[in-house]
Amino acid sequence: SDFTIRIGDRTLHLKNVSEEILKILEELLRRGIDFEELRKIVEELIK
Rank of each mutant, 00 (worst) to 15 (best):
1 S>G: 14
1 S>M: 15
1 S>N: 14
1 S>T: 14
2 D>W: 00
2 D>S: 01
2 D>K: 00
3 F>T: 07
3 F>R: 06
4 T>S: 04
4 T>N: 09
4 T>F: 02
5 I>P: 00
5 I>A: 03
5 I>G: 00
5 I>S: 00
6 R>H: 15
6 R>T: 15
6 R>D: 07
6 R>G: 03
6 R>Q: 14
6 R>W: 00
7 I>T: 01
7 I>M: 06
8 G>Y: 01
8 G>L: 02
8 G>A: 03
8 G>C: 02
9 D>L: 02
9 D>Y: 00
9 D>N: 06
9 D>H: 04
9 D>P: 02
10 R>C: 06
11 T>C: 03
11 T>R: 05
11 T>M: 09
11 T>L: 05
11 T>N: 08
12 L>P: 00
12 L>A: 01
13 H>P: 03
13 H>L: 12
14 L>N: 00
14 L>T: 01
14 L>V: 09
14 L>R: 00
15 K>F: 06
15 K>N: 09
15 K>R: 06
15 K>H: 12
16 N>R: 02
17 V>A: 05
17 V>L: 05
19 E>V: 10
19 E>S: 09
20 E>N: 09
20 E>R: 06
20 E>K: 11
20 E>P: 15
20 E>L: 07
20 E>I: 06
21 I>V: 13
21 I>W: 10
21 I>Q: 15
21 I>E: 15
21 I>M: 15
21 I>F: 13
21 I>D: 10
21 I>R: 04
22 L>V: 15
22 L>C: 03
22 L>Q: 15
22 L>P: 04
23 K>F: 07
24 I>L: 10
24 I>P: 06
24 I>C: 05
24 I>D: 07
24 I>K: 13
24 I>Q: 13
24 I>A: 11
25 L>M: 04
26 E>M: 07
26 E>T: 10
27 E>Y: 04
27 E>L: 08
28 L>E: 09
28 L>V: 12
28 L>R: 06
28 L>Y: 09
29 L>R: 03
29 L>N: 04
29 L>P: 03
29 L>C: 05
29 L>D: 03
29 L>V: 09
29 L>G: 04
30 R>M: 12
30 R>C: 04
30 R>V: 12
30 R>G: 08
31 R>S: 08
32 G>V: 07
33 I>R: 04
33 I>A: 09
34 D>I: 07
34 D>K: 12
34 D>G: 15
34 D>N: 12
35 F>Y: 12
35 F>G: 05
36 E>G: 06
36 E>R: 04
36 E>S: 06
36 E>N: 13
37 E>Q: 13
37 E>N: 08
37 E>M: 10
37 E>Y: 08
37 E>I: 08
38 L>Q: 02
38 L>I: 10
38 L>R: 01
38 L>V: 07
39 R>K: 10
39 R>S: 11
40 K>M: 14
40 K>G: 09
41 I>C: 10
41 I>G: 04
41 I>M: 11
42 V>C: 03
42 V>R: 00
42 V>L: 10
42 V>M: 05
42 V>A: 14
43 E>H: 14
43 E>M: 10
44 E>T: 09
44 E>D: 14
45 L>K: 08
45 L>A: 06
45 L>S: 06
46 I>K: 09
47 K>Q: 08
47 K>M: 14
47 K>F: 10
